[in-house]
C-alpha cells in the first residue's frame, strides 16, 4: 500500500481480496444451483442484492419456503452492519458530490470497507472517490462473474445431495461465525461465546412451538437483547 489515491493504486491494492470473492462467489453459485435456482436467478441475485453471506441466508430461507417479508427482514438484519460501515465511512467523502457518495455506498462491501480503513493509515487519513470506487467496482464484477461460474459448474453436478453439497451452506455459516468470533474485537470473546450458546438453547426449545422460518428472526432479536443485557451486567 502507498499514499496514492488513484485508479491504478486502487486496482493494485484490491487484487489480494479478489481471490476471496472468487472462492465464495463460486461456492454461492454452486449452492444456489444445488438449491434449485437457475444460473440466471443466481446471477441476478449477485447483481441486485449483492450481499455476500446474506445471499446464502436468502437461499436457505427460499428452500424452507419462508415468507417474503421474513426473508427481507432477515437480510436487513444480516446487512444492518452496512449501516455501521457506511456511517463510519461517510465523513471521509463529505467533499465529494452526493451522487459519488451514493455510488460509494451502493457497492460497499466488508472487504472494501476494511481495505479503506487500512488505506487511511497510508494517506494521512484521506480517502477519495476514484480510489474507493475502483476497489468497489473490481469487487462487484468479480463477485458477479464468480457466482455465474459457480452456478454453471453446479449444472454438471446432477445429484448434489449425494455428495453432501447441501452442507456447503451450513459449513459457510460455521466458517463465517468462526471468522467473526476471532476477528470482532469490539465485543468480549467470552461474551460472544455466551451469546452463541444462548442461541443454541433458544433454537432447540424454540423449535417445539415456533415455525423454523420465523424462529431464526425471533431468536436473533432475543439473542441481541440478551447480549446487550449481559454486556451491561457482567462485562
Amino acid at each position: 500500500m502507498n499514499n496514492e489515491l488513484n485508479v491504478p493504486s486502487g486496482a493494485k491494492e484490491t487484487l489480494p481480496t479478489v481471490f476471496g470473492y472468487i472462492g465464495i462467489g463460486v461456492a454461492f453459485g454452486i449452492v444456489g444451483k444445488a438449491a434449485g435456482l437457475s444460473p440466471l436467478l443466481v446471477t441476478l441475485m449477485s447483481i441486485i442484492t449483492y450481499a455476500g453471506s446474506a445471499q446464502f441466508v436468502i437461499v436457505s430461507m427460499l428452500v424452507t419456503h419462508s415468507p417474503l417479508l421474513s426473508i427481507v427482514f432477515s437480510v436487513f438484519l444480516v446487512n444492518s452492519r452496512m449501516i455501521l460501515m457506511s456511517t463510519t465511512l461517510a465523513p471521509y467523502f463529505k467533499k465529494e458530490s452526493l451522487l459519488k457518495n451514493v455510488l460509494v455506498g451502493t457497492l460497499l462491501t466488508d472487504e472494501s470497507f476494511a481495505l479503506g480503513m487500512n488505506k487511511l493509515n497510508y494517506t494521512d487519513n484521506h480517502l477519495n472517490f476514484s480510489w474507493f470506487n475502483t476497489a468497489n467496482v473490481i469487487s462487484y464484477l468479480t463477485w458477479i462473474v464468480s457466482s455465474l461460474v459457480g452456478a454453471v459448474l453446479g449444472n454438471f453436478i446432477s445429484n448434489p445431495e449425494k455428495f453432501g453439497l447441501d452442507f456447503a451452506l451450513v459449513a459457510m455459516f460455521i466458517g463465517l461465525l468462526y471468522l467473526q468470533l476471532i476477528s470482532d474485537k469490539s465485543i468480549n470473546f467470552n461474551l460472544q461465546l455466551i451469546v452463541v450458546g444462548f442461541v443454541l438453547v433458544a433454537i432447540y426449545f424454540g423449535l417445539i412451538f415456533i415455525p423454523s422460518s420465523l424462529l431464526i428472526l425471533l431468536v436473533t432479536l432475543v439473542a441481541c437483547t440478551f447480549g446487550v443485557v449481559m454486556k451491561h451486567v457482567f462485562f
Binding site: V78, S80, I187, C224, V228
Partner: peptide, 17 residues
C-alpha cells in the same frame, strides 16, 4: 444492539440445521 447481529444470526442459521 446491532453489534450482536452477525454472531447471533450466523449461529441461529447453523443450529437450525
Amino acid at each position: 444492539f446491532l453489534s450482536f447481529v452477525p454472531i447471533a444470526i450466523m449461529s441461529a442459521l447453523w443450529f437450525e440445521n
